[in-house]
């Protein structure tokens, strides 16, 4: 949008404390509290000791700050099977995340590029079905995929899950890249063909360097999505390589023992930390990612 300063003609408003402003900012303040309060409650709870939690008010700040729940959540909390905390899940998630993000983005970016610049007979139909695939409930495809992975010997393995993430990330990422590449002037592609570059030459020398921002957007989208996944993790891996979300659920919702709310909250925060940090660091790009993925879908 152009930066057109609007020059008011009438008399300048006298005060910022107009009824309109009080109402507007008041409403926004209440809204902000609704959204931010749960995060606040989590943080204060995770810093309290259990006796204080049992007696006190969830909104009250901790009288005595303790980091013990965090330490316990990370290294010794029990999932019912083992007691080495979330750290195992964290590293599992990292190991799942890196190849999944890489593979899904590579494939989707090549798809998007091929769909825009190298249309072949039926390519549009494949793309339409691919997009439609984004709306099929996962439950419909879950079991046959179990069979496929078993046949390939990948069931319960990390690479099986990587493959699943690549497949289910494909529709939205392909759409993202296709939309981006179709905004690149076609003449650029034509010029490169005259210059003798082929399919891969144009991809690596012309398209890839231009698409860096959209790669970042895709990365944010995928890191968040894959890190937050629960369903595929629980189905396609086995307990010792469960991703963090699955482990978190097992820790918090395990029926054995006394509920340690402070440890649970610390564990929950730890799991949410990666996407949260990514969200606050990436800021506008995150918004752009979800908007690009959603609006044009």
């Amino acid at each position: 949008m152009a930066n057109n300063p609007i020059i008011p003609n009438g008399p300048k408003p006298k005060s910022i404390f107009t009824t309109r402003n009080i109402l507007l900012y008041g409403t926004l303040l209440i809204v902000a509290i609704y959204y931010i309060l749960p995060l606040y409650v989590m943080i204060v709870t995770s810093l309290k000791g259990m006796p204080e939690i049992r007696l006190g008010n969830i909104f009250a700040p901790p009288l005595e700050v303790t980091f013990e729940p965090w330490v316990k959540a990370w290294s010794t909390a029990c999932t019912g099977l083992n007691c080495d905390g979330l750290s195992r899940g964290f590293w599992n998630s990292v190991q799942i995340l890196i190849p999944s993000v890489f593979l899904s983005i590579v494939i989707a970016s090549v798809n998007g590029y091929a769909l825009v610049n190298w249309k072949f007979k039926g390519s549009e139909i494949f793309f339409a079905v691919l997009l439609f695939g984004a709306f099929i409930p996962y439950q419909v495809m879950i079991y046959p995929i179990v069979i496929l992975l078993r046949e390939m010997g990948l069931m319960g393995s990390l690479w099986g899950l990587v493959l699943v993430h690549t497949v289910f990330g494909m529709p939205i990422l392909t759409l993202l890249f296709r939309n981006y590449f179709s905004s690149v002037p076609e003449e650029l592609f034509k010029a490169a063909r005259i210059d003798g570059a082929g399919f891969w030459g144009i991809y690596f020398h012309i398209m890839l360097p231009m698409a860096i921002p959209i790669f970042v957007v895709a990365m944010i989208l995928q890191v968040t999505g894959i890190w937050n996944d629960f369903l595929f993790g629980v189905i396609y891996t086995k307990p010792d390589i469960y991703p963090m979300t699955v482990q978190l659920n097992n820790i918090v919702n395990s029926v054995q023992g006394v509920k340690e709310y402070n440890v649970n909250m610390a564990a929950t925060l730890l799991t949410g930390l990666v996407p949260l940090i990514l969200y606050f660091v990436s800021g506008k790009l995150f918004v752009r990612g979800i908007a690009a993925g959603a609006v044009k879908g």
């Binding site: 002037p185 003449e187 650029l188 034509k190 010029a191 490169a192 063909r193 005259i194 210059d195 003798g196 570059a197 020398h205 012309i206």
Partner: peptide, 16 residues
């Protein structure tokens, strides 16, 4: 295109 012995100039310049 590259084998045809032609050079081409585009309206939008199409510089990389």
């Amino acid at each position: 295109p590259s084998e045809r012995g032609i050079g081409m100039v585009f309206q939008s310049y199409a510089l990389y």
